[in-house]
């Protein structure tokens, strides 16, 4: 595998300073790396969410990307129409639907599934900050078990929807998970996705200091701990065949994983968790690994 040297990647400012992202925003990192990965070939389709706000107010914009802002449940269909138009007029572009966990797994789910099934030539990036942050931290189907949100005051009682597996089941050419703490891995995956024709799905884990209740300086640390505790598994899959990515490979071995409490205790949102909840989360981690490894 080619090893990326981050110093040799484009250093342009794809997200201009003065943008409206909160301190420690993981989406800002995700966008910056996206620019470094694909430079100026990108057309972003952005449904409602934090990324609509980060752009700033018209007539200005902090994005150097070509961007189309669309309603919540529209992004993948808009991207599909856009990609179809580019195909028929013979223009090159990498069309990316850049949506949050709500725009992907909840209100955007039917559209996502439709585009995946049709194998439309787009990349869907799910920037997963595990709740509706833009409207003020309400639960989503990607909010993990036990997490506090403004609609789950005593901790969420349901599990996180396993969206990457659902996308695997669509038998699309490329499915990958990524984390804002591992930019080279994420950038490589974006580049691979851009080189493949058809539907590509990248699920980017994006810890949000505001919604998860941690110090903004710990964004990358929290994201890293998610991988090191095995909570978030980095992998990629070509045509349904899963390969665990290098940064997650050590944690196939349960002994190598850091205790999940190290990840949980940094985040106030898990404050209401009891020891038995932690046990349950540990079991969920084991189960997730077991399920995923069946696809390798």
């Amino acid at each position: 595998m080619m090893v990326l040297n981050i110093k040799e990647l484009p250093q342009e400012k794809y997200l201009l300073s003065g943008n409206a992202a909160c301190p420690g925003c993981p989406e800002a990192l995700g966008l910056k790396y996206l620019g470094m990965a694909l430079d100026d070939k990108v057309i972003l389709v952005v449904p409602a969410g934090c990324s609509s706000v980060i752009q700033g107010l018209a007539p200005g914009s902090s994005f150097r990307f070509t961007t189309l802002n669309v309603p919540f449940a529209s992004s993948d269909a808009v991207a599909a129409g856009l990609a179809a138009a580019k195909e028929v007029v013979g223009e090159d572009a990498v069309v990316i639907a850049w949506a949050g966990d709500g725009g992907t797994a909840d209100i955007g789910m039917a559209t996502l599934s439709g585009a995946a099934e049709r194998n439309d030539n787009i990349i869907h990036v799910c920037v997963d900050n595990e709740a509706y942050m833009n409207t003020g931290i309400q639960r989503s189907s990607l909010t993990p078990y036990g997490a506090w949100t403004t609609t789950t005051w005593t901790g969420k009682k349901e599990r996180k929807k396993e969206l990457p597996l659902i996308m695997l089941a669509h038998k699309v050419p490329y499915v990958a998970t990524a984390s804002i703490a591992y930019p080279t891995d994420y950038i490589e995956k974006l580049r691979k996705a851009a080189s493949i024709k058809g539907f590509k799905y990248i699920h980017l884990h994006a810890p949000c200091p505001v919604g998860w209740r941690f110090d903004p300086k710990y964004t990358v640390r929290v994201a890293k701990l998610a991988v090191e505790t095995g909570m978030w598994i980095l992998f990629e899959a070509f045509n349904g065949k899963v390969t665990i990515s290098p940064f997650s490979r050590p944690y196939q071995n349960k002994e190598r994983r850091k205790p999940v409490t190290e990840y949980l205790k940094l985040q106030e949102r898990f404050r209401t968790m009891k020891p038995e909840d932690v046990k349950l989360i540990e079991k969920m981690i084991d189960d997730a690994w077991k399920t995923l490894l069946k696809f390798t």
């Binding site: 057309i43 389709v45 189309l68 669309v70 309603p71 449940a73 529209s74 992004s75 993948d76 269909a77 808009v78 991207a79 599909a80 129409g81 856009l82 990609a83 179809a84 138009a85 580019k86 007029v89 223009e91 039917a110 559209t111 439709g114």
Partner: peptide
């Protein structure tokens, strides 16, 4: 909903 979305995307692409 997606039909209108897709033609919006296409028209925005020119």
């Amino acid at each position: 909903h997606s039909a209108m979305s897709a033609v919006i995307g296409a028209a925005a692409a020119g």
